[in-house]
């Protein structure tokens, strides 16, 4: 099995509203997979299917099959194992009401790591990866909620990396981060893909073009087109894709 994630005929309905329509999609291992599409096209819902946080939305009904690391996610008796394998960063930066250190140490602690030295190394490493270490290294005991929006977003990224996921899902991770830092994080992501599969949902079409190996274009809950990023951007098959990547619609 060479795919990190497979969607097999996945549909999601919220009450009477259809969020995803029969998505069939395979995301290869150790690549960056871009997902682009206009607002309300189901990008975030697609991510929520991967680690089953959609379970927390009672109105959502999922049909079809999502396979992560060769296993059907619906078949995970222990969802915590699944969520440990999948790191999630959502667009709204949420610093937990804990210190910066505890924010990053939260997931490892919940996963049973209590050794102080090990935690310290891990926290520093993750903050480095999220390009936040230099700004907060002298005030790790400050509340995470007191950081600025962009810093909190990087804190969220550090937190998602803290449990060493096999799959990292980034949903608009850069909307509150300044361009220079964004570029630095993008470099980190390119390094990280040696170790993990990265799913990158972005509204910045050019970001997908810079980073992604393959890209999928979603619109109104339907998968319009999927393929090599260069091909999507230069010779899209679908007229809708062409208009979107050229900024004519969306």
């Amino acid at each position: 099995m060479d795919h990190a994630i497979q969607f097999d005929d996945v549909s999601v309905h919220y009450g009477g509203k259809t969020a995803l329509r029969q998505i069939t999609l395979a995301i290869p291992k150790k690549q960056i997979f871009g997902i682009i599409g206009p607002a309300n096209s189901g990008k975030t819902t697609l991510l929520k299917c991967i680690n089953r946080t959609l379970d927390f939305t009672p109105a959502a009904r999922v049909s079809g099959k999502v396979v992560v690391a060769g296993r059907d996610v619906a078949g995970f008796r222990n969802v915590y194992e699944l969520r440990r394998r999948v790191g999630m960063v959502f667009p709204l930066p949420v610093g937990l009401p804990l210190t910066i250190y505890e924010n990053v140490a939260y997931a490892p602690r919940r996963a049973g790591i209590h050794d102080r030295a090990e935690l310290e190394v891990l926290v520093e490493h993750c903050l480095h990866q999220a390009m936040l270490w230099d700004e907060v290294s002298d005030r790790l005991d400050m509340l995470g909620t007191r950081l600025s929006g962009g810093q909190q977003q990087r804190l969220t990224l550090a937190r998602a990396l803290s449990h060493r996921p096999e799959i990292l899902c980034l949903d608009e991770f850069s909307i509150a981060i300044d361009p220079v830092t964004t570029m630095k994080i993008e470099d980190v992501l390119l390094e990280l893909k040696e170790q993990m599969t990265i799913v990158l949902v972005t509204n910045l079409v050019q970001q997908a073009r810079r980073l992604a190996d393959r890209t999928a274009f979603l619109s109104a809950g339907t998968l319009i087109e999927e393929g090599e990023t260069e091909k999507i951007f230069t010779q899209p098959v679908n007229r809708l894709t062409e208009r979107y990547v050229n900024g004519e619609f969306g």
Partner: peptide, 25 residues
């Protein structure tokens, strides 16, 4: 609710979320 969702995404169970984040606040 965002606090809870952040915890769930980090693999915390509901009870861990309640004990560490929701109740103290």
């Amino acid at each position: 609710r965002a606090f809870r969702e952040a915890c769930w995404n980090l693999g915390a169970s509901r009870w861990q979320t309640i004990r560490t984040i929701v109740l103290p606040n």
